[in-house]
């Protein structure tokens, strides 16, 4: 029970993810649950999810090169 609660606290709100788009290109995002990132292929950016909170700031996002995709 506590484990389940902890898991839930770590992951982002799935309902929220459905509403989000890339703030730079307004294109859809792909949720990477292992890396806890939201990937915008159009902008080549991976927005971090910290403590389950999506951080939708381009300056905080990781730049993706061709290889890592």
């Amino acid at each position: 029970m506590t484990e389940e609660k902890e898991k839930k606290a770590e992951g982002p709100d799935r309902k929220l993810l459905e509403l989000l788009v890339c703030p730079v290109t307004r294109s859809p995002l792909i949720y990477d649950s292992t890396k806890q990132e939201l990937i915008s292929k159009a902008a080549n950016l991976a927005y971090p999810i910290r403590n389950g909170i999506p951080v939708m700031l381009p300056e905080e996002a990781r730049h993706l090169d061709e290889l890592s995709l």
């Binding site: 989000l20 910290r50 909170i53 939708m56």
Partner: peptide
């Protein structure tokens, strides 16, 4: 737009720039 402002809020939250909203149409 700042992580520390929402960190401890119990409900649904996110960090974004009010000048670049990440919400779909």
């Amino acid at each position: 737009n700042l992580f520390p402002l929402v960190k401890d809020y119990p409900g649904t939250k996110l960090v974004c720039d009010p000048e670049a909203l990440p919400f779909g149409d």
